[in-house]
Design a protein around this nucleic acid. Structure first.
Ligand code: MN
Ligand code: MN
Ligand code: ZN
Ligand code: ZN
Lengths: 151, 151
DNA sequence: TCTGATAATGAAAACCATTATCATTTTGTA
DNA sequence: TACAAAATGATAATGGTTTTCATTATCAGA
């Protein structure tokens, strides 16, 4: 159980320990399809492991970010949200729709071929023009969700 | 001078007063090609108008955001950055390259046709699929700038 | 199994960008 | 000029995140 997961390997390679806390946090991230804040994760973990503190949540999330296991998103609503990276998630490559009214965040997986084409072209162009090595990108669409339109 | 600008009209339409503070803040935004934080703007304004406080900077930036004169960006480095919107800026439609090491932000105006094509397709798709009305989008490219590569 | 070095942790305090409060000043209008 | 509404600055408060530091858990070697 402990070492059979992808991240178990990753942790070992980085000389990090796969502790109870870290496993509990990863488990929460694996078993959700939402975008969770540190506090969301703290509360989810707390029900089974009341001893784990919020500080550890923040520290672990930072660690998971550094090792490429989670992505940190700042949607502009005060608190950062976390999601497993494509490599470690069941989710496919996707981007986000954000409702400017209710702040809902929806995953959007369509038109990935077209996106890839544009992104590749742009990333190559930037490499050539600026010498900038691109390795990730973010696309956010802002608008009003159907519920807020109806209101 | 006071009313000959686009934003003068906009302010009037909204029943807002075009005060010294607001003009000073707009002037800073007009005369830069950088992405400034509230504090950056405060310091720039301060040299000529020491009486203007940081609170007014924040309040005015929020106002300018509401009226569509500035865009607020959260690049994930702690403080928000502000830039005139396409409509009020000399800059063309563009997106951003962000260096993950030194946090530099570079404007990128290439491949806009290709981008527009993809964005239109995606926005239409989302409208049809989710009933989500998209009106803006953000594209951020993350990577390492040439200076940091050389280090 | 013991032991020491190192990593991880929790509680509490500190940090810091941003926002709220409120008394005062400025502005547009009659 | 007088008055109401809007704008402002100093200050305090907020709240998500990070630091600090003493304690605990983990692992490698003896
Ligand atoms: Mn997502
Ligand atoms: Mn820009
Ligand atoms: Zn909504
Ligand atoms: Zn750099």
């Amino acid at each position: 159980m402990r070492d059979c997961h992808k991240w178990g390997q990753k942790f070992q390679n980085y000389g990090l320990r796969l502790t109870i806390s870290r496993e509990a946090i990863l488990e929460v991230l694996i078993n959700t399809d939402k975008h969770l804040s540190a506090e969301d994760i703290f509360m989810a973990v707390h029900s089974n492991n009341p001893a784990i503190g919020l500080t550890t949540i923040y520290r672990t999330l930072e660690l998971l970010k550094q090792t490429g296991i989670v992505t940190k998103f700042e949607f502009g609503h005060g608190k950062a949200k976390y999601e497993l990276t494509e490599e470690y998630s069941k989710k496919k490559h996707h981007h986000h729709l954000i409702c400017k009214k209710c702040r809902k965040v929806v995953d959007y997986t369509d038109f990935i071929m077209e996106e890839k084409e544009y992104i590749n072209k742009a990333a190559t162009g930037m490499q050539n023009k600026f010498g900038f090595d691109i390795d990730t990108h973010i696309i956010h669409f802002y608008g009003i969700c159907p519920e807020c339109k109806a209101e």
